[in-house]
Simulated scan of single mutants.
Amino acid sequence: MTGPESEGLQLRRAVCPGSFDPITNGHLDIIARASKLYDVVHVAVMINQSKKGLFTIDERIELIREVTAEYGNVQVESFHGLLVDFCKQRDIPAIVKGLRAVSDFDYELQMAQMNNGLTGVETLFVPTNPTYSFLSSSLVKEVATWGGDVSHLVPPVVLEALKKRLGKD
């Protein structure tokens, strides 16, 4: 083995969690920025049994892997349960979250404090690029469902998957 771990150095790890149904350019911006700050970025696709997603978990994982392949240090997998357990199992000390607005901060601060209190994991807030400050997966799905143009909001491979899924070819 070569590299930092073979020399006894700890790799800097972080996780970017979310449902990513589908991944948007806003998500991708946060993941790309995290990949410049950390040696390994885990993208954790949340499994919520009570919600019916547009894409299956496996489809989301595949789309994310495809659009993050160029970064070289992004690992994508699913998780069910507490994010802090995901972090503990993988020795991940930091969660990276994008903030679009003050309302995001109110909710995310509570989560960050709870996560830190449970296991000591830190949360880093990254301000969203203003271009994507309004963007959410739910909004993308709604606009795409009604035939609106979302080509500037999602990567091309995601746009094609949306069109196929929604029958908008």
Rank of each mutant, 00 (worst) to 15 (best):
Y107L: 14
N115C: 03
V150S: 13
G148N: 13
P155S: 11
P155L: 10
T131S: 13
L153W: 15
S133T: 13
L99F: 03
L139T: 11
T123L: 07
V126T: 11
G98R: 01
L124G: 02
E160R: 14
S136F: 04
F105K: 04
D106G: 02
V121A: 04
V96K: 04
C87G: 03
T123K: 05
K97L: 07
S151F: 09
Y107C: 13
S103P: 03
F86Y: 15
D106E: 15
F134D: 14
P93L: 05
E142H: 05
V126S: 12
D104W: 01
D106Q: 14
S138F: 04
D91N: 15
A101R: 06
L124W: 08
S151L: 07
Y107Q: 13
P156D: 15
P127K: 02
V157N: 06
E142C: 07
M111S: 11
P127F: 12
D104R: 02
L82P: 02
D85W: 01
V143N: 11
L153I: 01
R100I: 11
Q113E: 12
L83K: 00
T123A: 07
F105P: 02
S138M: 07
A94V: 15
E108G: 08
V96S: 05
G117W: 01
F105Q: 05
F134V: 10
A112L: 03
S137F: 04
D91H: 12
R100G: 12
Y107G: 08
P130S: 10
R90K: 12
N115G: 03
I92V: 14
S136H: 05
P130F: 11
P156M: 11
E108W: 01
N115K: 02
V154E: 11
I92Q: 06
G148I: 08
V150Q: 12
I95L: 04
S133A: 15
D149C: 09
V84M: 00
G148L: 09
P155Q: 09
P130M: 10
E160I: 02
A144C: 10
K88Y: 02
P130Q: 09
G120K: 03
V84H: 00
H152G: 12
L109F: 12
I92W: 09
P93G: 10
D85I: 03
G148F: 09
E160T: 13
N129G: 04
L153F: 15
L109I: 13
V84K: 00
H152Y: 14
A112V: 01
L139Y: 04
F125A: 07
G117D: 08
V140Y: 04
P93A: 10
S103G: 08
F134P: 03
A101M: 06
S137E: 08
Q110V: 08
Q113L: 15
F86M: 02
N115D: 06
Q110Y: 00
R100N: 07
V121T: 09
F105H: 04
A94W: 04
L153C: 14
S138N: 12
G98A: 08
V154R: 05
S138L: 07
M111R: 02
S138Q: 11
A112T: 00
R100C: 09
V158W: 06
C87R: 00
V121N: 01
K141H: 05
Y132G: 08
A161L: 06
L109N: 09
S133I: 13
C87S: 06
D149Y: 08
E122C: 06
